[in-house]
Simulated assay, not measured.
Amino acid sequence: MRIALTGSSGKLGTVVARELRNHGHEVIGLDVVGTRAKGFVQVDLTDYGQVIDAFAGVDDQHQGIDAIVHLGAVPAPGLRPDVAIFHNNIVATFNVFQAAIRLGIDRIVYASSETVQGLPFDVPPPYIPVDEDYAARPESVYSLVKHLEETMAIELVRWHPELSITALRFSNVMVPEDYAEFPSFDADAASRKFNLWGYIDARDGAQAIERALEVAPPGFDRFIIAAADTVMSRPNAELVAEVFPGVDLHGDLGTNDTLLSIDKARRLLGFDPQHSWRDEA
């Protein structure tokens, strides 16, 4: 496929661009910052005219695309004032979705967020492991936007039944250089409780994106995307008893299995994470 990748200069985006190209896809990177190169176009996603023009074709780059991977955003709460995060992220995502619809591009995979599950879990989750079955619980403006984006996607695919939009609720994105710090997390269970000690290797994030591009049917769906294990060496039963006593447990937690359930992504996307910090720290 020829794929437009927004946010191509970001932490996840750079790995996704590399992995998709390695698997034979043509990738057109779109970002507000980046290095001049073949396959990269500088675009302000909050400007609808730039977005639809970049998707339609760019001289010496491409003359139309097959699918969109939308990662471009202010990537976390606290990086900019709340109002700036809201205005940037909701407008950028609407522009991407609307431009795709106007151009007849019917396959979109985009970055939602684990924060929609209720992070930082200052209010404990309803049960552990968490999954996609309970209602969104945004606890920040950043997370609120992610929830609104998912709500918007639900309505857009209702209006356009041929459209496929897949929201990937990525956990905390990591690359191998980050793993040296992981052993230090064991000293304080509360330091990483904000997302139930989860993470996602960026390479496995790219795998999830490619699987969704290949197999997601028309309509909308959402998936938690996390590594198969936690960031901790300490066993799950010990961590949960210490930090989340009294929370309902759904089944066997495993010793270090992820507490951000990826069962749905495994079942419907064929997602199969291959990378663990334990192999590379």
Rank of each mutant, 00 (worst) to 15 (best):
A190M: 05
A190F: 11
A190T: 13
S191N: 08
S191Q: 14
S191M: 13
R192Y: 06
R192W: 08
R192M: 14
R192E: 14
K193I: 04
K193L: 04
F194C: 08
F194H: 15
F194T: 13
F194D: 15
N195L: 03
N195T: 12
N195D: 15
N195C: 14
L196K: 12
L196N: 11
L196I: 10
W197V: 13
W197C: 15
W197M: 14
G198L: 12
G198M: 14
Y199H: 15
Y199E: 07
Y199F: 15
Y199N: 08
I200L: 15
I200F: 07
I200C: 09
I200M: 14
D201G: 13
D201C: 13
D201T: 11
A202N: 13
A202K: 11
R203H: 14
D204L: 09
G205K: 06
G205L: 10
G205W: 05
Q207F: 05
I209F: 01
I209T: 00
I209V: 09
I209W: 01
I209L: 00
E210D: 06
E210Y: 03
E210I: 00
R211G: 01
A212C: 10
A212R: 02
A212T: 07
A212L: 09
A212K: 03
L213V: 03
L213A: 03
L213G: 02
E214I: 01
E214Y: 00
V215G: 12
V215W: 00
V215H: 05
V215L: 03
A216C: 05
A216E: 00
A216D: 01
P217Y: 06
P217Q: 11
P218F: 06
G219W: 04
F220S: 02
F220V: 10
D221F: 02
R222L: 05
R222F: 04
F223N: 00
F223L: 03
F223E: 00
F223H: 02
I224Q: 01
I224Y: 00
I225W: 04
I225C: 08
A226L: 02
A226G: 03
A226H: 01
A226Q: 01
A227Q: 06
A227V: 06
A227K: 06
A227I: 04
A228P: 02
A228M: 04
A228W: 04
D229E: 11
D229L: 04
T230K: 04
T230E: 05
T230H: 08
V231I: 12
M232R: 13
M232T: 02
S233V: 05
R234G: 05
R234K: 14
R234T: 14
P235F: 03
P235M: 03
P235C: 04
N236W: 08
A237F: 07
L239K: 09
V240Q: 01
V240C: 03
V240T: 03
A241H: 10
A241C: 12
A241S: 15
E242C: 06
V243T: 10
V243Y: 07
V243K: 05
F244Q: 06
P245E: 06
G246T: 09
G246F: 04
V247A: 09
V247Y: 07
V247L: 08
V247I: 11
D248P: 08
D248C: 05
D248A: 15
D248I: 10
L249M: 07
L249V: 15
L249K: 07
L249G: 01
L249W: 03
L249F: 02
H250N: 10
H250R: 15
G251Y: 10
G251T: 11
D252N: 15
L253G: 07
G254T: 05
G254I: 09
G254V: 09
